[in-house]
Design a binder for these strands. Structure first.
Length: 430
RNA sequence: GUGGUCGUAGCUCAGUUGGUUAGAGCACCAGGUUGUGGCCCUGGAGGUCGGGGGUUCGAGUCCCCUCGGCCACCCCA
């Protein structure tokens, strides 16, 4: 086995029954955002590399050192998507649908980084984007939908942190004053940031190190630097959240990793996960992105949720369990397999979940398989039933949890083979 | 990219100061029950001890290299 292949580093397989959780998760998301008018967008998993470089910013960590970039056979520079938003906005820019355009997606996202707990080279995200309006109520709708989804999967305690990053009018001035402050006070920062802060000054605000936290308490804050329009917008977002009773924490230091964010930004974190990976989702407004990708001015807002992180948080709170997956009927054939082949086919045709054993195994082995399948009924056909044109329909008792020696319940009956499907349907109905 | 840590059966792990054909539990398969699942009993299959090199009469055990997993930092979901 030593030379058996394995999944590439940082990737993982989701096998059943775990994958059934993913199915129900996506279905629940689709239903929630569908009710709010969001439609599914399926776009290519890779794009012209510049879509991401211009979107999330060539200087950001994700773009500068984590992109899965490659050249195809036609010498085009392409990249696997590192996040969901840029692709959706590229699709908007290309097709110019009527706005407000409300889209949702579920997609893998690729980032080349060293794998660790809850951090993958391929992870998966669910998200929505609402493109074509700067109405603060749209921010409120987007955030409220995310909050509703967390509640739906049983995460009662996720924390929402909220900030405004300003706009093209007010942000540059703030960045300048922050830069000046850092030049004067770098010595007080944590060892990491006292050396290298100039690449992305905003990051320093988000540092969790105590030295940085203490020092930057005196640093300029974005919320004091917002222009009148941004200030008003932010206030109306908060009012809207209040009116919907969506709880949030003002987080003046919150800085997200992508350059495209303007005005509203937010993150959701789960207190039941370790701090290094407790971010279960986030998003914000990106009023300049459509233009940056060559399209019309189209203010927009959206969020993304990491599926792996979300499920991890659910595990920590024993919520959103793997759904039960049981067969209805298991067909046991001791006469060579023809009955099993034809009867499972007929049963499935009639809408019944039906399975069978292969390889002509013993009755005992087939009964064990029936038990494992969770089937409520077993249909048993041996030589004598076959000769009489009959079949045994047996009620399978559910596995008992503790009692070691379960009492046998021989609830089974002999049915004409023509009537098996009908009888099975009848028994399943009760 | 930097650092730490761990690699023995499908899974979880034992394996004495280096010493015969490397073990257990769970899972799997078969039989006990000549046609009835779970519980029980008996048996079976399954390992080049991650790989390579070295030390030694002898290496799962000691040394070196390498690959892989996990975790942390940076950053993120």
């Amino acid at each position: 086995m030593r030379d058996a292949f394995r999944a590439p580093s940082g990737t993982h397989d989701v096998l059943f029954p775990e994958s059934a959780r993913w199915e129900t998760l996506v279905a629940a998301f689709s239903s929630l955002v569908g009710r709010a008018g969001y439609g599914l967008v399926i776009s290519p998993m890779f794009e012209d590399e510049r879509v991401f470089l211009r979107g999330i910013g060539a200087g950001s960590d994700v773009a500068s050192k984590e992109m899965y970039s490659f050249e195809d056979r036609g010498a085009r520079r392409l990249a696997l998507r590192p996040e969901g938003t840029a692709s959706v906005v590229r699709a908007f820019v290309q097709h110019r649908p009527a706005s407000v355009w409300k889209a949702w997606y579920v997609t893998p996202a690729f980032r080349y980084e060293r794998p660790q707990a809850a951090r993958y080279r391929q992870h998966h995200q669910l998200g929505i984007e609402a493109i074509g309006s700067e109405d603060p109520d749209l921010d409120v709708e987007v955030i409220a939908l995310a909050a509703q989804f967390y509640r739906h999967v049983g995460l009662e305690s996720v924390e929402l942190r909220l900030n405004s990053m300003g706009c093209a009018q007010c942000r540059p001035g703030f960045e300048r004053s922050l830069f000046e402050w850092l030049e004067a006070n770098a010595a007080q920062l944590c060892p990491e940031h006292s050396q290298r802060w100039s690449a992305n000054p905003l990051r320093v605000l988000d540092c969790k190190n105590e030295l940085c936290l203490g020092a930057t308490a005196q640093a300029p804050q974005i919320c004091d630097a917002l222009c009148t329009d941004c200030d008003r917008h932010f206030a109306r977002v908060k009012e809207g959240l209040d009116s919907l009773r969506v709880a949030y924490l003002s987080a003046p230091r919150l800085v997200r990793g992508f350059d495209y964010y303007t005005r509203t930004t937010f993150e959701f974190s789960s207190p039941s996960l370790a701090a290094a990976q407790n971010g279960v989702g986030g998003g914000g407004r990106y009023d300049g992105l459509a233009e940056a990708l060559g399209g019309p001015a189209a203010p927009a807002v959206g969020f993304g949720i990491g599926i792996e992180r979300l499920l991890l948080a659910c595990d920590a709170q024993d919520s959103f369990p793997v759904p039960e997956d049981r067969m209805d009927v298991f067909v046991i054939d001791l006469t060579g397999g023809r009955v099993a082949r034809e009867l499972t086919h007929e049963l499935r045709n009639a809408g019944v979940r039906a399975d069978r054993a292969f390889d002509e195994r013993s009755l005992k082995a087939q009964m064990r398989a029936a038990d494992r399948s969770g089937a409520k009924l077993a249909v048993i056909v041996g030589p004598s039933e076959q000769e009489a044109g009959k079949a045994v329909v047996r009620q399978m008792m559910p596995r008992l949890r503790e009692e070691s020696d379960a009492r046998r319940d021989d609830a089974q009956e002999l049915v004409d083979s023509d009537a098996v499907v009908e009888r099975v349907l009848e028994m399943l109905r009760r």
